[in-house]
């Protein structure tokens, strides 16, 4: 019996190690290759050295030669900045607008409230992919093509975020608000002064969900930010990948750079993200 258990454990760890390799080898290869020169990448690929960082003696231009070259060839900084402006814009305005809507739907009684909630939830079913053409025409009519406004404004209101906020505010104790009302503060004051500061978890969750979704956005920035100076990092990468001369090391460096912000978010705030999604998932 004990022996069987022992074998089982060995099998378990061997398969886990194998799986780990399957899930990690592309990442390791990307990281390691970004540090090597072109010649070495191809030479090492013929053996398991493909997954080992270059020895100091093998790097001629320094470990970060590819990174420096990639930054010199295309304006990666500008692309990342564009992505940050784009995502931050959506997050800042999105948090305000959606939390207010969620609050309204959770707290106030007014005509058609149920109807609007139904409408908002129904819009969740509309695939954004099916409206991007008319949305593009609209944004063009507004003169917003190749502007941050055009990138941001259409995605401020977010039915999913409204829904999350509403769920959260439904469970929020009413007593605090009552007290503030007696103090003579307006509803708006109550909301921004009392509710918002006490709702940090839900704001964090929504902010992260928005960040991850829009940092990874592809289709909308592709059509709206056609100008080189407006490209987000995802679009910039796509162009960089095809821009001759294609240098594998530089592409790997650019991919690594583009991953860093997401890595930071996940490293520090992962639990909010998973919480947010499982929360809605398990509730139904």
């Amino acid at each position: 019996m004990k022996r069987k258990k022992g074998i089982q454990r060995v099998v378990l760890y061997v398969s886990l190690t194998l799986l780990t390799f399957i899930f990690l080898f592309p990442l390791i290869w990307m990281l390691v290759s970004s540090l090597k020169d072109e010649f070495q990448i191809f030479r090492d690929m013929k053996s398991l050295k493909a997954f080992l960082p270059p020895a100091p003696s093998e790097v001629e231009g320094g470990y970060f030669a590819n990174y420096i070259a990639a930054f010199q060839r295309v304006d990666l900084m500008k692309y990342i900045l564009n992505s940050l402006i784009y995502t931050t814009g959506i997050i800042v305005f999105g948090l305000i607008v959606n939390s207010m809507a969620g609050y309204a739907l959770a707290r106030f009684r007014f005509p058609l409230a149920g109807f609007w909630l139904g409408v908002i939830i129904a819009t969740l079913i509309i695939p954004p992919e099916s409206i991007f053409l008319p949305l593009y025409v609209l944004v063009y009519d507004l003169g917003w093509v190749n502007t941050y406004t055009g990138l941001i404004v259409p995605f401020i209101a977010n039915a999913f975020a409204i829904f999350l906020f509403r769920q959260f505010f439904l469970d929020f104790p009413k007593e605090l608000e009552e007290a503030a009302k007696i103090d003579g503060c307006s509803q708006i004051g109550i909301f921004f002064r009392i509710i918002v500061p006490l709702s940090k978890p839900v704001f964090a969750t929504v902010a992260i969900v928005l960040f991850i979704n829009h940092w990874n956005d592809f289709l909308w920035p592709l059509v709206v930010a056609s100008d080189e100076s407006m490209r987000t990092i995802q679009i910039g990468l796509q162009y960089f990948m095809n821009e001759p001369p294609i240098k594998w090391g530089q592409v790997m460096a650019a991919l690594t750079i583009a991953t860093v912000p997401m890595l930071l978010i996940f490293a520090f705030l992962q639990r909010y993200y998973v919480q947010g999604l499982t929360h809605t998932g398990s509730k139904n």
């Binding site: 809507a101 007014f110 005509p111 609007w116 409206i131 008319p134 509803q187």
Partner: peptide, 27 residues
């Protein structure tokens, strides 16, 4: 209360209407 409610809800409704429902209709 209705006014306050709509005041809170309006920005989201307008944005969803203009940038989601209208394009849907336009499509």
């Amino acid at each position: 209360e209705a006014v306050t409610g709509y005041f809170f809800l309006a920005p989201a409704l307008i944005l969803l209407g203009v940038f989601l429902l209208y394009p849907m209709g336009a499509a």
